[in-house]
């Protein structure tokens, strides 16, 4: 069994591969950010990526929707390989939603316009339809009353929930979360995590980079520990929090828990 498929239950192993990374390498100048990453994410799986800062967690998920371009290895998303082909990139991006640490909402547009922008311009939806869908999503993340406000008028937690709704509006099969709660005040973290738990229960395939151990323990199917651009250990939450194999994983967990 390759490292990518470690700790998969039989049921999970029989599912379709949604994301496959094989030997993915990435350099920023002289600095090697990814040193040959192998990971497989199955359909409806929630994978949490842990690791110290600079370990390549963010770079990895940014490669998956090509915000960064990997230099070696291959990335296959739902059967489509990430290459220089514009059509493949568009196809992958339309299936993969992303939520950022800094929310990255569009400050010049209202909450509703933030959510409907891509459905109207990329998917060519009718405005009425896109707005109805957006209101539905805002209900789901619990802030329908903020629809006509601007991002600057919302709290951090509300902004991040809008960002999640904005990604969901494109009806992605996969959601990538890049430290979604790291820029939030402590009392707002749970409202965002609740939305993410809800998504996970709904069967969304997710890769989550986070330091929220409670969330990882509760929601993750598998955890991945990365260091220096390499996958050190893959396992179930139970394995990770009771008896991790690798010394480095133990050290990291002892510092963070």
């Amino acid at each position: 069994m390759s490292i990518a498929d470690q700790a998969l239950t039989e049921e999970m192993a029989s599912r379709r591969d949604m994301i496959v990374c094989r030997g993915v390498k990435k350099w920023f100048g002289d600095f090697q950010a990814l040193a040959g990453v192998d990971i497989t994410v199955k359909d409806r799986e929630v994978m949490v990526v842990l690791g110290p800062s600079g370990s390549g967690k963010s770079t990895l998920i940014r490669c998956i929707n090509r915000l960064e371009v990997h230099q070696e290895g291959e990335i296959v998303v739902d059967g489509v390989e990430m290459t220089n082909d514009m059509r493949n990139i568009e196809k992958i991006r339309s299936e993969v939603g992303m939520v950022f640490q800094q929310f990255n909402l569009f400050p010049h547009l209202t909450v509703l316009d933030n959510i409907t922008l891509a459905p109207i311009w990329v998917r060519k939806r009718a405005r009425v339809e896109a707005e109805a869908k957006a209101m539905e999503l805002l209900e789901r993340v619990g802030i329908p009353e903020q629809a006509n406000k601007f991002p600057g008028q919302l709290s951090g937690g509300q902004q991040q929930r809008v960002a999640i709704a904005r990604s969901l509006a494109m009806e992605p099969k996969i959601m990538l979360f890049d430290e979604p709660t790291s820029a939030l005040d402590p009392e707002m973290i749970s409202e965002v995590l609740d939305v993410m738990k809800d998504l996970a229960r709904g069967g969304m395939t997710m890769i989550v980079v986070t330091h929220e151990m409670g969330f990882a323990r509760e929601v993750a199917d598998r955890l991945v520990f990365m260091e220096s651009g390499d996958v050190v250990e893959v396992g179930t939450p139970e394995h990770f929090f009771t008896n991790p194999t690798e010394e480095r994983t133990k050290l990291f967990l002892s510092q963070i828990l």
């Binding site: 929707n65 090509r66 915000l67 568009e90 991006r93 339309s94 993969v96 939603g97 992303m98 950022f100 800094q102 990255n104 909402l105 569009f106 400050p107 010049h108 922008l117 891509a118 311009w121 990329v122 960002a163 904005r166 990604s167 494109m170």
Partner: peptide, 25 residues
């Protein structure tokens, strides 16, 4: 840069991102 990244992640093309997100700001 996060603004164009968010636009790209949503699937907007470069010119759409420029017109709808970057230039207005």
């Amino acid at each position: 840069a996060g603004q164009s990244e968010a636009a790209a992640a949503l699937g907007l093309s470069r010119s759409q991102a420029l017109r709808k997100v970057v230039l207005p700001q």
